[in-house]
Amino acid sequence: MKTEKFIERERKSFNKMLNFRLPYLFKIVGVIVFIIALLLLIFRSQFGGELLMLKNIARQGIVIGLLFISLSRDKEEDEMTIHLRARSYAFAFVVGVLYALTMPYVEYGVANVIKPESTAFKNLGEFQLLSFMLLVQVMFYNVLKRFR
């Protein structure tokens, strides 16, 4: 009996975690944070100061902004939007893995053609991968919603 109660409680908290969504307001906040961070990344040399720190802040802002957009509810949320969102996460995950596997070789190949003398093989950074996956998820979700 005690074990059953424990399992039921675990199941409920797990479902609660899976169904977690931020309020719609966070979508707007996410867009604003994303745009500001993107502008900061593009025009960081104009601001002066510690450039590397600004770059890191801007990158984190982009990921946080995209995460807010991705996790927030829609104005009209129903079972179909939940279904489409799940599909978009699955798609973004697969595309993200393929991107992480192939992109370093593509970058290495392109760099070899352009500047063969100073080419070193390097893996993707976490910012590049996370922002790519979140961007794919957000875009694919909106495409699915448009074509529903």
Partner: peptide
């Protein structure tokens, strides 16, 4: 039934199979 108009449209066009609840 508490869904969006687009969802009804998708169900009618057989693009989406609703849940048992719906």
């Amino acid at each position: 039934i508490g869904v969006s108009r687009q969802t009804i449209n998708s169900i009618e066009a057989n693009r989406y199979v609703p849940s048992t609840v719906l």
